[in-house]
Design a binder for these strands. Structure first.
Length: 342
DNA sequence: GGTAGACCTGGACGC
DNA sequence: GCGTCCAGGTCTACC
């Protein structure tokens, strides 16, 4: 009988701060991720060996202060084996980008010193490429609140259940067997039904090899070309997948990017002209262009709505004009709105 | 290569 | 309560 523990420690890079870095990208608001602002704890239902496991991630505060680099505490509802903890660790290393060392972030801060003081630069993501892919598809052509609802329903109806009743993210195997019409009826994914099922089937058939996409040996262009060839993936989604794969040179520009260009950077003209100016604006940041864009965007959200670690996912969704979004882009637990998207 | 319109959901708004 | 309008990115047909 292998030794088992209810909690373990996880070492992090010396600049890592959980509340800042785990809430650095909007996917932290999508199930099965659950950020708990009052405890500054990150709850996640992970799928380990086809079983759902609830894990709580916290960062202790020595002397009551936040100290960057303090190892995280991972705790579960029951004792887990060493093998299980090894898999949990590896999922969280991907999710929290703990394999991205302080050196990489220092390089970004040299290029864009605005974010050096706060120390931000690391972007959270999902524990698997499949989940990142499906989350990206659910973020296209809908309001952010609808994206939240789709992910909630996907987990609720097709995710594996944990002992507590929480649900993990559905696997490619499960989604590949779902009829598109059933997916549409239960998860309100609309016309994305066939695309999501086909993506899941491509995973199970081996037509999509996540290891190929994760391989840094391939060029950005090769990965972009492969991504944009997938069903439901266009220029925005392919660029977003690149940043989720740790390639930050391209900008996934969507309507939020346009709004940012107009209202924050003061760009004028047609959408195409604003897009072009945005690309020029961040071009000097080279391999860190997306980080610069994203944290600038996030800063504008936080100026209106407070720090990201105080946000909660909210439903129903407000539908706002581009101009109104500028005023109501993010939401605090007190009940204002959120649009801090993925 | 560029453009127009369909694809859906869900919130806002008018009646 | 119902109908209409609108926002959102991708895909396909057409020029």
């Amino acid at each position: 009988m292998p030794a088992s523990k209810r909690s373990i420690h996880l070492d992090v890079p010396r600049d890592y701060v959980l509340r800042r870095d785990a809430t650095s990208y909007g996917y932290f608001l999508l199930e099965p991720n659950r950020w708990v602002p009052e405890n500054e704890a990150f709850d996640r239902t992970l799928t380990i060996d086809q079983r759902a496991i609830d894990v709580r991630i916290t960062q202790p505060r020595p002397g009551g202060r936040i100290v960057a680099g303090t190892p995280l505490v991972l705790s579960s509802d029951r004792a887990r084996t060493k093998a299980e903890w090894t898999k949990v660790r590896s999922a969280l290393i991907r999710m929290l980008r703990l394999d991205e060392g302080a050196k990489v972030l220092a390089e970004f801060h040299r290029l864009d010193p605005r974010f050096k003081r706060e120390g931000c630069g690391r972007l959270m993501r999902s524990p698997t490429f499949f989940e990142d892919l499906i989350k990206t598809v659910t973020s296209c052509n809908v309001t952010w609140a609808t994206t939240i609802a789709m992910n909630r329903k996907l987990c609720q109806h097709f995710g594996p259940g944990s002992a507590s009743g929480a649900r993990g993210f559905p696997s490619p195997e499960v989604l590949s067997r779902v009829r598109p019409a059933t997916l549409r009826a239960r998860c309100s994914v609309g016309y994305r039904d066939h695309r999501i099922v086909e993506l899941a089937r491509m995973f199970t058939r081996g037509d999509i090899n996540p290891e190929w996409f994760e391989d840094p040996a391939h060029s950005d262009q090769a990965v972009y070309d492969a991504a944009i060839a997938l069903p439901g993936i266009g220029p925005y989604a392919a660029s977003n997948l690149l940043q989720l794969l740790g390639r930050y040179a391209r900008l996934p520009l969507d309507s939020e990017g346009l709004r940012h260009g107009e209202t924050v950077l003061g760009f004028r003209g047609t959408d195409a002209a604003i897009m072009k100016r945005l690309k020029q604006h961040y071009q000097p940041m080279g391999p860190h262009a997306f980080r610069s864009y994203w944290f600038e965007l996030r800063t504008s959200y936080q100026e209106r709505s407070g720090p990201s670690w105080t946000w909660l996912p909210k439903r129903p969704a407000p539908v706002l004009s581009r101009a109104h979004k500028a005023a109501f882009s993010a939401e605090k637990p007190t009940g204002t709105r959120t649009n801090a998207r993925g």
